[in-house]
Design a protein around this nucleic acid. Structure first.
Lengths: 227, 227
DNA sequence: TCAAGAAATGAATCATGATTCAATTGTACT
DNA sequence: AGTACAATTGAATCATGATTCATTTCTTGA
């Protein structure tokens, strides 16, 4: 008897795995998921196509892993931002800011993660990411609005609490959160379009403040500019 | 000399074209774009695969045509709805209502049109559709808010016009419109998910009124329920 | 230094579906 | 009742890329 996988061996394996995922991420960041053929990833990772199948059952599984890892990062960032904000207005600002800024740096990758055609396995992961965003924002809104569930959709400027709840005009936090996530994402479609020149810095600032303002307005806080 | 395409002949051709597109639409409405192979469409249209290439240069072109036709209808409906609404609040209500109701009838097709993976040529068409929605809503908002461009993002309840414009807190109509379209669409993702049972009628009503409320709130009209 | 496996290679397969095209059938006109 | 050309067929081809696997190249412990 003679060979036994040792610590170093297994570490190497882990590293290989990482290097493959990293290569895949680079390829995607350069040309999107469409460019991420197994051959292209292998080339970038400087290994054979066959080897990739030692580490992943198939292409979809590799892409899913890459997406999931990236998802994790992105979601964590948003969660942190939301956690630090205590008012609905602050959440609105943070989310718009963080979302847009992260997207425009790493433009191509953001476009791939958010909008590109992906295999089903990856799409599943994308839905999870979106749900994560929504859950995070919704939780933040719930927390910020103090009480239990629905978010007051309307200015609470005149009187803080009108007493009698009019259910008709309240919005479940989840719907609000979805709306915000979807609304911001939709506003990034053109901005991230790879066939288009990247936006100027001032355009980015303008977009962020517009999105922030709109969201704050929707949440009923900060009805007009607070300076 | 002997054969000459005649009126009837050309009418038939037109009919064939329609029947192929209609077949494709049916297939898509049943199983999404993924199910719309040339073979499947041919089967549904009761013709050979070859014939399809007499009428369309290739599969993408066929799907693009189908999508474009459907797009046209959908956009027209929204445009009509927006045109009839004169205030921002009315636009918010119309758009939410029409969008959601049309989507849940024709669930599968709506899902395909809005969310499914599509070939590039179709994706292009989808972007056009989205831009159409945005343009329509933006135009409506501009019209409703009387003056020229930016939409006041905030309650205009306290005082109608504060005099000095604070640009910081205004939102370009296009951003607002995009936000609304994206926000509503995002809220349909789960509702239209083909692997999920369709929503109950009361869920639909609840969603519509929540979306409408949130949108009205964002637009700064109707801060709290107007009964 | 060797034997036993593990890691890695990459050209040869496979799978899937779009696309072609030689052959057949239909239509309009004399 | 035939000719000229259009419409239609569908099996055979192609294109693209993922996936396999026989072979070669390391690693480890004795």
């Amino acid at each position: 008897m003679a060979y036994r996988p040792t610590a170093r061996t297994r570490a190497n394996a882990q590293q290989r795995r990482l290097s493959i995922e990293s290569a895949a991420r680079h390829v995607i960041a350069r040309g999107g998921f469409a460019a991420a053929s197994v051959a292209a990833v292998a080339r970038e990772a400087e290994c054979s196509t066959g080897l990739i199948y030692t580490y992943y059952a198939n292409r979809d599984e590799l892409l899913r892993a890459v997406f999931a890892r990236a998802s994790g990062h992105e979601l964590a960032v948003i969660e942190t931002a939301v956690a630090q904000a205590s008012t609905a207005a602050a959440i609105a600002e943070s989310v718009a800011e963080v979302f847009v800024r992260r997207a425009v740096t790493g433009r191509r990758l953001a476009h791939a993660l958010l909008f590109e055609e992906v295999p089903d396995a990856v799409q599943l992961e994308r839905l999870i990411l979106r749900r994560g965003y929504v859950a995070s924002v919704a939780a933040g809104l719930d927390r910020a609005s103090g009480h239990s569930h629905p978010v007051r959709a309307g200015a609470e400027s005149p009187s803080a609490a009108g007493g009698a709840a009019r259910d008709v005009s309240t919005v479940p936090a989840e719907v609000a959160a979805r709306f915000i996530v979807g609304g911001i994402a939709e506003n990034l479609v053109d901005v991230l379009d790879p066939t288009t020149p990247p936006p100027r810095p001032d355009e980015i600032e303008a977009l962020i403040s517009a999105l922030s303002a709109f969201t704050r307005s929707a949440l009923g806080s900060d009805p007009l500019g607070e300076k």
